[in-house]
Computed example of a mutant assay.
Amino acid sequence: MRILVTGAAGFLGSHLTDALLAEGHSVLGVDNLCTGSLANLSHLKHESRFEFAEHDICTPFDFGRVGYVFNFASPASPVDYSRLGPETLAVGSDGTKNALEVAKKYGAKFLHASTSECYGDPDVHPQTEDYWGHVNPIGPRSVYDEAKRFSEALIMAYYRYYGVDTHLVRIFNTYGPRLQKNDGRVISNFVMQALRGEDLTVYGDGGQTRSFCYVSDEVAGILGLSGTDEHLPVNVGNPHEWTILECAKAVLKVTGSASRIVYHPLPEDDPMQRQPDITKAKTLFGWEPKVDLETGLRLSLEYFRSCLTEETADLKMA
């Protein structure tokens, strides 16, 4: 099958591309590179089954017939969507609509990368897919949260009104190689700070919780969902709950760093709890994560050390 992956040069999009190619498909990757990097796809330069088009999906596009559309185009880290607020809203609306139009035209299946941020700072714990969320629609995080919530509504409309075979995955914190080193997310922040010998920055008292899913587990869950007949949202994340402070200590253990942990005020609208209920994923396609946090951190270390090496080289050249 020829498959379209939007956001293919991003962290998750590039890993998804690798997995689809490994299954024998051909992949057309589309990305405007506002947050993605061609370095994430450089290992595919001699792969005949991979094509790449640099394009902003907020502008209508058609690169020929495809059998599946995986819509992964969007700034996803706090640093990126804070910098690219209007662009984030646009890709969640115009960009998603244009990707849906491709699926509609060719009768292709469609899977959209949504997010646990749809739950906001939840009143329900753990979060089940039928929980509608507790989101500030005008806060500093709203450009991302509401873009994803609108895109879910748009996708369900294309399913209900036009019969597009759509799927919605709600992704929880995912980490691993190719995660941007300075993207403001917990794992990349902590690991890079530890490797640099800097203080690890914990916001609040560190008691807020997150679930951390290693990228190979996340991609396996996404592919599992893609083959089902389920059209409503499905959580794909690690149900093991970690406090931010526990995560910081795990990073210090794995890196062997002597860095200290320091505390800063909580950012506005930062969720206090995040833990997926994955009963639906287990029931529908037998998925649950296999990689624990410490193992995943060790699997990611070589990548983050290479980021530090490049950073040091750039400083010497400056």
Rank of each mutant, 00 (worst) to 15 (best):
I57T: 01
V262F: 01
G227A: 12
I138C: 00
R210A: 09
E54I: 00
T243A: 08
S226M: 10
K104R: 15
R149W: 03
V135W: 06
H43D: 10
L111P: 00
D217R: 05
N238S: 08
H125N: 05
E198V: 01
D121N: 15
Y68M: 14
L252H: 09
L200K: 01
I171H: 07
T209S: 15
R170Q: 09
D165M: 12
F70T: 06
G10P: 11
T35I: 15
D94P: 02
Y161G: 05
P60R: 02
L20V: 07
E117R: 12
L111M: 10
R149G: 11
L301Y: 03
A147V: 02
D121A: 13
T59Q: 09
F70M: 08
V91N: 05
Y131D: 07
D94Y: 01
V251I: 13
P276M: 11
K109N: 02
S114W: 11
T128V: 08
N40W: 15
Y203V: 07
L200F: 05
V251D: 03
S82N: 12
S48C: 01
V164F: 09
V69T: 12
A76Y: 13
S226G: 10
N189Y: 00
Q275K: 13
V79N: 09
D183N: 15
D314E: 11
H240D: 10
N173H: 13
R83G: 05
S48A: 14
P78S: 09
N182A: 10
D217Q: 03
T283A: 11
A99K: 02
L225I: 03
Q275F: 00
R260A: 03
S151W: 09
E246H: 08
Y119Q: 06
E129H: 04
V102S: 02
A90I: 01
N32E: 04
H167T: 09
G206H: 09
A258S: 13
E129P: 06
G29S: 13
H134I: 01
K148E: 13
A258F: 03
A9K: 13
G10I: 13
A53M: 12
Y131I: 02
A8V: 13
V143Q: 06
E198W: 06
I171A: 13
L84A: 03
G163D: 06
F212Y: 15
W287T: 08
A76T: 10
E51P: 04
W242K: 01
L179Y: 00
S37C: 05
Y68W: 01
I222D: 07
E241P: 07
V186M: 12
P75S: 12
C58A: 04
Q208A: 12
D80G: 04
S142R: 00
P126C: 07
T228F: 04
G7A: 11
G197E: 10
S48M: 06
R49V: 01
Y158E: 11
L38I: 10
T309G: 11
I244L: 15
E246I: 00
I171C: 14
D183P: 05
H167G: 05
Y161V: 14
V186K: 04
R260I: 02
F190I: 10
D314A: 14
N182Q: 09
H46Q: 12
F70K: 12
G13P: 02
A22H: 00
K105M: 07
A99H: 01
